[in-house]
């Protein structure tokens, strides 16, 4: 997790702290890792209307909060599927060169000596 940026302004600090509290609650309710992307996905689901009266739920007892976790999970953005990697090696394309016939000829000339046992 990156260092928390410094907020000189009290209002800015208060907003950041409120967001962190909300993220805390989301992480506990949904059992999420504390990565910004995962927390943001949960926050987006919450703000996007997954739980209509969410401020009330936020301050409700923990049991009540558990009821909303399914609704939140269902609405959390799932941008990409589970990774199913495949290797895609770069293919070899041998381009034509005007020197090719010469190289070919040289290879032809040198090949008998290469075959000669030492």
């Amino acid at each position: 997790m990156p260092d928390r940026p410094e907020f000189p302004d009290p209002l800015t600090g208060a907003l950041a702290a409120a967001r962190e509290l909300l993220d805390d609650w989301l992480a506990r309710t949904l059992d999420l890792p504390r990565r910004p992307e995962a927390l943001a996905a949960a926050r987006a689901a919450l703000l996007g209307g997954a739980v209509p009266d969410w401020p009330a739920v936020l301050f409700a007892p923990p049991d009540a909060a558990r009821d909303v976790s399914d609704a939140l999970r269902a609405m959390m953005a799932d941008p990409t599927p589970v990774s199913a990697p495949g290797a895609m090696p770069a293919q070899r394309i041998e381009l034509f060169s005007l020197l090719d016939p010469l190289r070919h000829w040289r290879r032809g000339v040198s090949s008998p000596s290469e075959k000669t046992p030492s």
Partner: peptide
């Protein structure tokens, strides 16, 4: 950048 994004969000709500 996620950190910058969060910071700007808080910053512009206050100022």
């Amino acid at each position: 950048d996620s950190e910058t994004l969060l910071r700007l969000h808080a910053l512009f709500w206050s100022r």
